Computed example of a mutant assay.
Amino acid sequence: MRILACLTAALLGAALTLPNPPQAAAADDPSWQTCIGSATAPGDRVTACTAVIDGKTQTGRHLAGAYCNRGHGLTEKRELDAALADLNEAIKLDPAFACAYTNRGRVYAFKQDLDHAIADYDEAIRIDPGFAMAYNNRGDAWLNKGDLDRALADLNLAIKYGPQLSTAYGNRGFVYYRKHDAAHAIADFTTEIKLDPNVLAYINRGNVYRDAEQLDRAAADYGEAAKLAPTDARGWRNRGLIRLFQNDIKGGIADYDKALQYDPADVYSWNNRGQAKLRLGDKKGAAADFRKALEMQPDLKTAKEALARLDGAR
């Protein structure tokens, strides 16, 4: 599941025409523009918003927005306590700032404080009943609390109010997957892919196809994930497993070679490549892979048993 952050540029746009502007006009303040820019990197956002705050160039909701956006940047850097302090200040400056409540809820979610997260999303929705992002994030929190029905209800509302919000389709697809509703899960992941082709969407849809034993479709989705992000091990190792299921042993080994190149800490890739090498008769290579897996997870039963059989056959 994915929880979304809220930036304040759109919400603050109308405030640029106030008759009594802050000391520096927002439109002419480069630090402010970087602070609210949707493409600004987290570190740059923190620096720019700090310049706005310390320079006292903005007041009112603009100042609250600077704290809110700096809180967003700090959240992305996983400096959660500092982010929380900024978002508290944003809400203190402007208690009717729905975006700040949503971002603070996101911080609480990352801190695994789901009750406080839900309370903040509740407040954001009370302020703005059509706030799709807040419904999406509250749905994520309900899922993490294990309440799939409440999660589904919120994600339905996220999609009602934000029909182009691709992440909400992905999150709802994951809820359907958890509810063992493969048809609806596939439909939602397909919509997400149409709106925003991304690695996780292909991986998630591939997982549904895999569980439904539609292996060719699963392999195709994992392959798309590998094309989109060739240095992300997930597409390679998932397709590698499917290729082993399909008895394409050499293809499976090739995919695990890639997976281990980009994520050498994945114990199951070592184990599975070892199993594949064993099926090809490469006992030495298989033993090396099993030993590597056991270095990382000494109680991995499949690797222990396979290595014991190899050692006993000598």
Results as ranks from 00 to 15, higher is better:
177 Y>L: 08
133 M>K: 10
140 D>E: 05
142 W>F: 11
137 N>M: 03
141 A>W: 00
171 N>K: 11
156 N>D: 03
211 D>T: 07
135 Y>D: 14
180 H>D: 10
139 G>Q: 03
166 S>W: 06
140 D>S: 08
137 N>K: 02
190 T>V: 03
137 N>C: 05
141 A>L: 09
171 N>F: 02
185 A>Q: 12
199 V>Q: 09
132 A>G: 04
183 A>W: 00
199 V>D: 05
207 N>D: 09
129 P>D: 07
194 K>V: 10
189 F>N: 06
140 D>R: 03
183 A>M: 05
188 D>Q: 04
176 Y>H: 13
140 D>Q: 04
184 H>N: 15
197 P>E: 01
159 I>L: 00
194 K>D: 05
200 L>Q: 14
149 D>R: 09
196 D>F: 04
185 A>H: 07
144 N>M: 04
180 H>Y: 01
181 D>G: 12
209 Y>V: 03
188 D>E: 06
171 N>L: 02
172 R>D: 06
173 G>N: 06
140 D>P: 00
154 D>W: 04
198 N>Y: 07
148 L>H: 14
203 I>W: 08
131 F>Q: 13
196 D>Y: 02
160 K>R: 12
182 A>Q: 09
150 R>C: 04
191 T>Q: 15
208 V>K: 10
126 R>K: 13
192 E>M: 11
170 G>A: 10
217 R>F: 01
216 D>S: 04
207 N>Q: 10
193 I>R: 10
183 A>Y: 03
178 R>E: 14
127 I>V: 04
185 A>V: 10
216 D>N: 11
150 R>S: 06
185 A>Y: 11
127 I>Q: 03
166 S>G: 13
147 D>M: 01
182 A>L: 06
166 S>Q: 08
145 K>A: 12
171 N>M: 05
191 T>Y: 09
200 L>M: 13
161 Y>V: 06
163 P>L: 12
156 N>R: 02
160 K>W: 02
